[in-house]
Amino acid sequence: MRHDFIDRYSRLESPVHALDPRAKAIALFAVIIACVTTPANVWWPYAIYAALVLIIANASRLPFSYLLTRMLVVAPFVLVVAVCVPFMHGAGPTYDLGVFSVTQGGLLVLWNVAAKALISVSCLILLSSTTEFADLMHGFERLHVPQFFTTVAAFMYRYIFIIIDEAERMKRARDSRNFRGRWLWHIKVIGHMVASLFLRSQERAERVYQAMSARGFDGSFPRWKETHMHAPDWAFMGIITATALAGRLVVLWK
């Protein structure tokens, strides 16, 4: 398996990659919160948020095809909402499309969900693809996220690939023995797979824990480089957050 499939592009070199994780996290979370709370009937704040996302994406030198593929994660939800549009009781004029009709209110719902979901998801993708996982966790720690979470997450990240590989091996072994699970009663096989996956992962955890204790693990990871907020970090955080909040507040004011 390719082991860098999550933060595959997090080691690129670009102005966005070089920023402090805290600055990126706060700025992008601000864009998400501003976007999610913006009412649907005004379109131009969404243009501002989309422009911010595009500028950051462009500066980060991430391939656009990669961003687009990752954004497909919200496609199922948007599709479900789109299928439901004809059944929505919205206000406004009704458009007749032959077999069914849609209301303007229903289309507004679809636009609202699609715009918010896409902008929010692209912010999250930008954050995770421009920051190495360890740096991101360290950044959260500096933002006073309890160390319990960052340490558990670090272990999870370290072992997830090994366990997924293990699961893939079991799946291959199962499939090569002509397993064709198509119905709910085939599930017993999967139950046994999950059980042995759990036992193997626990036994691995015990070995890892003993090895780490033997090497003096005290519950925290030593860092070999310290991050600092410099002028560009403050500038990035300030400009992005202020623009997003401005877009949100002007709507409120009107």
């Binding site: 558990v152 272990f155 999870m156 366990i163 992962s201 955890a205 824990y209 693990f217």
Partner: peptide, 13 residues
């Protein structure tokens, strides 16, 4: 904590 982290990875997988 390592046990919990690896269990989290297991749930994820």
């Amino acid at each position: 904590i390592p046990l919990l982290g690896i269990t989290a990875a297991f749930i994820f997988a």
